[in-house]
Amino acid sequence: MSMLSGVKHIILVLSGKGGVGKSTVSTQLALAMKEAGFKVGLLDVDLCGPSVPYLLQLEGKDVHQCPEGWVPVYADPDQRLAVMSIGFLLKDRDDSVVWRGPKKNAIIKQFLSDVYWQDIDFLIIDTPPGTSDEHITVMENLKDLPCDGALLVTTSQAVSVEDCMKELSFCKKANIPVLGVLENLSGFVCPVCSECTNIFSSGGGKSLADLTNVPFLGRLPIDPSLGECGEKGKSCISVNPNSPAAKVFQDLVQTISEKSKVSSVPAQ
C-alpha cells in the first residue's frame, strides 16, 4: 500500500444505519479539517449509493490517470481537499452499480492502492451502512496503516442506536479504535415559533456512548442549511460560525487533531 504511505492519519465514518448523515458528517468534517489548515482526502466507499460528489457539488468531474495512479478530484483550487468516489466513474448519475461482493471488494482495493493521494494529513473514509463486504475489505486493507479510529454517526431513534451497537461490535472484532459517537438529526427548531421538536427523539446517541463506554462527541440538530454549506464547498464553521453544528465540528476538529498530535500547517 505504498500509495497510502504519505497519508498520516485515517478516520473511518461508520454507522450501522443508513440515512443518518454519514456522508454529511464526512464532508463537513473534511471541509472543517481543510479549513483548519490540514491537507485532507475524502474517500467514498459507498458503491451503490455514493453521496459525496453530490454533497460537494462535484458531480460530472472526472478522475484522470497519471503515471503514479488515479488522480483524485480536488474540491478546491489549492488542492487541499482530494475526493474519490465511484460517482466520478459512472457515465450517468442514474446508473446503478449492481455488483456482488467480490467486484465491490476489487474496486475498494483499487481506491486504497491506486489513488495518488500524495501527502495528506487525514484520509476520511465514508462508508455505506452495514457490516458487510465493504467494511470487511476496508478493515483488512487498513491493517498495517495508521488508522486513528472510527467515528460513529447515529440518530437518536432506537432503530438506529441498535444498528450502531452492531457497528461497535464490528469495530471491536476488527480492532478498530472508536473515536466516539456523534448524534445527528437531534431536534428541529421551527423557523416560525422556535419550538424545538425532537422528531427522531433525542439523547439516544449519548446513552449509546455511555452504555458502551465510548466518548460522546456531540449532538447535531436537524439543520437543512448544513447541506447548503457543503454545496458551496464550505464548512458550517465558516458559513454559520455561531450555529450549534459549527460548535460540534470545531470541537471535533480539535479532538481529532489533539488525538493525532498533528499541528496544522498553515496554508501557503
Binding site: 450501522g16 457490516t131 458487510s132 463486504d133 451497537m165 452492531k166 461490535s169 464490528f170 472484532k173
Partner: peptide, 11 residues
Amino acid sequence: GPEEAVIWRGP
C-alpha cells in the same frame, strides 16, 4: 442480542 453484528460477505 441487539449488539451482535452479522459480519458476513455476500455469499
